[in-house]
Design a protein around this nucleic acid. Structure first.
Length: 160
DNA sequence: GCCAACGTTGGC
DNA sequence: GCCAACGTTGGC
């Protein structure tokens, strides 16, 4: 079996929240709208079925990690890039050679309480975590297995 | 709502 | 290829 990788994905909860994911058909959604090349490259090159994801809410309190999702489909073209009515439309992305990709993620669990950004910043062992770095804007970030373990312990959650 | 940090665009 | 201008992200 392939090694499971760990990620953090950001969403503004008034656009798409962890609760929205839990209520979605099959508790699954296409992670549309990534328009950053570094994030796209992670989706394209490294996301594998079974990878685990920390679901992070940005901009809106409570800012922080809300729970866990998992990757259930690997990268494929993001249809919103081809849709002129979408806020994510990109006329430079062609169907024959799509610029932007998405993966499908499925709800796993919501934490009993969100882990706030302030809490992450003051937790030993998370000093190097990308999301706590000043000016970190990347919406798809790798998480080390050590960081993953610390966050799940903070949340009081254990996953089989 | 402000604004620092960052990514992209485009003139040269 | 440089870099100023511009647009976006996201904490506060």
């Amino acid at each position: 079996m392939a090694e499971t990788r760990y990620w953090l994905m950001k969403s503004e909860p008034d656009v798409f929240s962890l609760s929205d994911l839990e209520r979605a058909p099959g508790r699954t959604t296409g992670w549309e709208g990534v328009r950053n090349y570094q994030a796209r490259n992670y989706l394209r090159d490294q996301f594998k079925t079974g990878d685990r994801v920390l679901f992070y809410h940005s901009r809106v309190e409570p800012i922080g990690i809300q729970g866990v999702a998992e990757v259930v489909r690997e990268a494929y073209p993001d249809p919103t890039a081809f849709d002129p009515s979408s806020r994510y439309f990109d006329p430079k992305s062609k169907v024959a050679s799509p610029t932007w990709l998405q993966v499908d993620v499925r709800f796993v669990c919501a934490f009993p309480a969100p882990i706030s950004l302030a809490q992450l910043k003051q937790t030993p062992g998370l000093e190097r975590m990308m999301v706590v770095q000043k000016g970190s804007r990347l919406s798809v970030q790798p998480v080390s297995i050590e960081e993953w373990g610390i966050v799940l312990a903070l949340a009081g959650v254990s996953l089989s």
